[in-house]
Design a protein around this nucleic acid. Structure first.
Lengths: 340, 340
DNA sequence: CTGTTAGCGCGTTCAT
DNA sequence: ATGAACGCGCTAACAG
């Protein structure tokens, strides 16, 4: 007696279902039934088992459970780093919902290289997740398909794909952004500068290309300003730029970068938006915290994350229960003080 | 032949080590040896096995591996949501290093309630992580100790704890902040207002209390301004506040909230820092992006995250290999434009 | 209602 | 150098 209570504190190894069974004086099958709320267990023995569980501090091993029913109750999330607010908001939404549905979330961060993508996919498959949601600009559709070979239900964000056990969320950023810039150009302006940030991802690249194409088709020109992804670098570069250029319409991928332009302009004696106008593609709350407030586009990424995981759980429960396999959400334009 | 190649594409179930063995014409023990780079395998059979693995697209199941050697190669991360930049930066650092060491990271988000904490801990233990790093203001030391009963190596961030298989990282925020505010008070000022944000966490609470105590001991007074955690709410509240109060020294937990005060002040016709001074406890890059730039304290949270996981991996490899069980990092004060 | 048994996929002795 | 057999902790028939 004394021994077992001491053992309770000093267990080296995990307490197993077997020990619980022994202490409760039943077979391990009965313990399993109690754990999983199966019917057909006397209230009395149920109590005994629960008492033993509490006394031993027993927690079933998700590993063993997973192996036994080939369900890990784990979902994978592939994202390109949580460094940006919109990504971490999305992540928050995903984890939140996953938790509600009883799933643990494993995060797989992808860098911007193909080799890394392969390694991450490998890791994802090995880890035996029940399903995954992927938000990764850099990943090609074939790589995503390759995951499907392993029959892992997938929700893909940002790619227009479909298939068995595959749902997708389309984020419509390009059109809303282009509409605004087009309008500016069509009003007779040919002063558009686009911040061309290294490794910013497919979505931003698409917008840049779309804009260039449109300009060309209309006898205009898009000026590209290439920088590495850093507020400081862009700020310094623009300070220099404004020594020789005193006006323009600038498009930046994110609001922090837009702020770099705004700050550089104002500190170069220019007026915003009279001399220089600035538009941020991806806005965050800082778009309206910063003065002047930055005109930008926004999407509720927390919601995107929630929806993604909700779709996934449906897929996991019953592949046919996911009616709408594609969800579309459109960026909203918030005109503020940095554009006219 | 044709059958098996078709099967490769249509496998319903996971390809197992057993199938690989069959295809390669060896026993599963040999396959296991190849997978784990064990010696004593002929180069020839090794090739055969690798070929089979490639052909079948076999990936070992981390679940089964974990069960077999009671190591899940999974580490848990407990954090209070990735909503704030400093948390997601830390998270990034953790995942980054974990990946390098071959660990998959499972995220456990804690809300600000005891019940939730219990549930999350339960989930953490069930999930069979090899170790975990915890950054959670709200968690009590006893709750953390309870995790230790399950012999899960832990790195705790923000609590000064120690013990077997337990390391900690102390973030020194309180002293640096108090030093600055004390200096202001000791200079003869009694105009300090502290933003008292609901559910902001232990660290911020500590600072608030420390400040109050200090004030009391010096015949002064700290004014508390209580708000929910929202830029909009604080901004609106401060606009109203500045209708009747035209000066003060304000301390806010984060820079976005500090910005709310700054904006409200300026738009109320007050000058910063001449009339109102503002200090943010936790700064981010926005502290220097915003104009006027916000005086704030900062810590490289990415680094904190990296170090935490690095410490954990040492603990996992060999509990005694972690020499320094406590790592201290001190917030750095960046005096900028919102204070004199 | 409860116990017995056979896997889940893999690592690891122990023989050979 | 390689294979057979057992165990990791748990679930799911199948008996009783």
């Amino acid at each position: 007696m004394i021994d077992s209570s001491k053992k309770q504190l000093n267990v080296k190894d995990r307490v197993t279902i077997y020990e619980v069974a022994k202490v409760a004086g039943v077979s391990l099958a009965t313990v399993s039934r109690v754990i999983n709320n199966h019917p057909n267990v006397t209230e009395k023995t149920k109590m005994a088992v629960k008492a033993a569980i509490a006394r031993l501090g027993y927690k079933p091993s998700a590993l063993a459970q997973g192996l036994a029913n080939s369900r890990s109750t784990n979902i994978g999330i592939m994202i390109p780093s949580t460094g940006y607010a919109y990504v971490s908001n999305m992540l928050d939404g995903m984890i939140d919902i996953a938790k509600i549905y009883g799933y643990v979330t494993s995060i797989f961060i992808t860098k911007r290289t193909k080799e890394d993508a392969a390694q991450v996919i490998e890791s994802l498959i090995k880890s035996h997740v029940d399903g995954a949601v992927i938000y990764d600009d850099e990943l090609g559709t074939d790589e995503i398909r390759s995951i499907q070979n392993y029959h892992i239900p997938l929700i893909v964000i940002g790619h227009d794909m479909s298939g068995d056990s595959l749902g997708s969320i389309i984020i419509e950023y390009k059109d809303p952004v282009m509409d605004v810039v087009k309008e500016h150009m069509l009003a007779g302006n040919d002063d558009v500068y686009v911040l061309d940030i290294v490794n910013e991802g497919k979505m931003v690249d698409d917008i840049r290309n779309g804009l260039s194409d449109f300009a060309e088709a209309n006898g205009k020109h898009i000026n590209l300003l290439r920088f590495n992804d850093s507020y400081g670098l862009v700020y310094a570069g623009m300070k220099e730029f404004f020594q020789t250029h005193r006006k323009g319409y600038f498009v930046a991928p994110r609001d922090s970068l837009a702020a770099a332009i705004v700050n550089a302009a104002i500190e170069s004696g220019l007026r915003v938006p009279e001399d220089v106008e600035v538009l941020a593609e991806i806005g965050s709350k800082y778009s309206y915290i910063i003065r002047p407030q930055i005109s930008s586009f926004s999407i509720d990424m927390f919601k995107v994350g929630s929806i993604a995981v909700r779709m996934l759980t449906k897929l996991l429960k019953d592949a046919s229960s996911l009616k709408e396999k594609t969800f579309r959400i459109r960026a909203k334009y918030n005109k503020r003080e940095t554009t006219r």
